[in-house]
């Protein structure tokens, strides 16, 4: 085994599926959302026409939103398991070290320091993207709810919140789509085509290159110290019921998100204002 053939599991299959779900729903949301924001542009008009019109487009957008919400629920459950049952290190949490790493990387790039920072399981670039995604999903969910359920929302909030939500939803969408195109594309596709999210594995060379501290922990045998089977079983006994309740609550939330109101009648009654033929002198 050399550094090219020796591989390490970076993402188990469940995480890869999760990535696919988020990737597809995000792409769908972007493709059906951006044309709504820029609906006057000819490209948007073509996209809307190709997908069968604005109402179809909105239905696709809503469906993708539901998929992403379900994906987020799944992610929270997996994270809960990893944190509570397995007591994995919360390696995605941003730390002060990440800020220092970022600055060091920048200084290295422009030639002010001699060495690139050595990072662990998640680099500052990955953490930044992850938390940007979390932030974006939160903003999009809240503003999306306000637009999806304007009647329910305005029972408790001023009416102005609805157009404000639309403004934020559109602004955040542009930011998210461009950030993915710029940051994600460069970071994992252009700089180096990082296949870990598809194959699940990284070679030792890649690990040494990108996650040297994690590799060191693995080599030292302190990376994934799993609790013993009895402890896991004991924690599962607590986690599963709690998770079940949380799942029901979150799914209930999504159900409410989708069904809390019938916003508008689907057909409007025509304005029957007056008799059309109504001669001044009655006809004989």
């Amino acid at each position: 085994m050399n550094r090219v053939t020796q591989t390490y599991l970076r993402f188990p299959i469940a995480r890869r599926i999760e990535h696919w779900v988020m990737m597809l729903s995000f792409t769908t949301l972007g493709l059906t959302g951006i044309p709504q924001k820029f609906s006057a542009s000819n490209i948007s008009i073509s996209v809307i026409q190709a997908l069968g019109g604005i109402e179809v487009l909105r239905t696709i957008h809503h469906t993708a939103a539901i998929v992403m919400m379900l994906g987020s629920v799944w992610h929270l459950l997996v994270m809960g398991y990893s944190t509570f049952v397995l007591r994995d290190k919360m390696s995605m949490l941003p730390t002060f070290q990440d800020a220092k790493d970022g600055i060091q990387a920048l200084l290295y790039n422009i030639g002010f320091v001699k060495t690139y920072p050595q990072m662990g399981r998640y680099t500052f670039e990955e953490k930044m993207e992850y938390w940007a995604f979390v932030w974006g999903t939160a903003v999009m969910s809240i503003t999306g709810f306000l637009m999806w359920n304007p009647i329910t929302s305005t029972k408790y909030l001023p009416g102005e919140f609805v157009p404000a939500a639309k403004a934020a939803h559109g602004g955040e969408a542009v930011l998210a789509v461009l950030a993915i195109i710029i940051w994600h594309m460069y970071g994992v596709h252009i700089k180096r085509f990082n296949k870990a999210m598809f194959t699940g594995k990284q070679t030792e060379a890649e690990m040494l290159h990108e996650h040297p501290l994690e590799l060191a922990d693995i080599k030292a045998g302190i990376a994934d110290r799993r609790p013993d089977a009895t402890t896991i079983r004991k924690r599962q006994m607590i986690y599963y019921p709690v998770a079940a309740i949380l799942t029901v609550a979150m799914l209930g939330g999504i159900y409410g998100f989708i069904n809390s109101e019938q916003t508008a009648l689907t057909t409007i009654t025509p304005l029957t204002e007056t008799q059309i033929f109504d001669p001044q002198t009655p006809q004989p």
């Binding site: 009647i151 305005t154 029972k155 909030l157 009416g159 102005e160 919140f161 609805v162 157009p163 019938q262």
Partner: peptide
């Protein structure tokens, strides 16, 4: 079902 605040949307 719209209520008072709704029209300001």
């Amino acid at each position: 079902d719209a209520t008072a605040n709704f029209s300001a949307a």
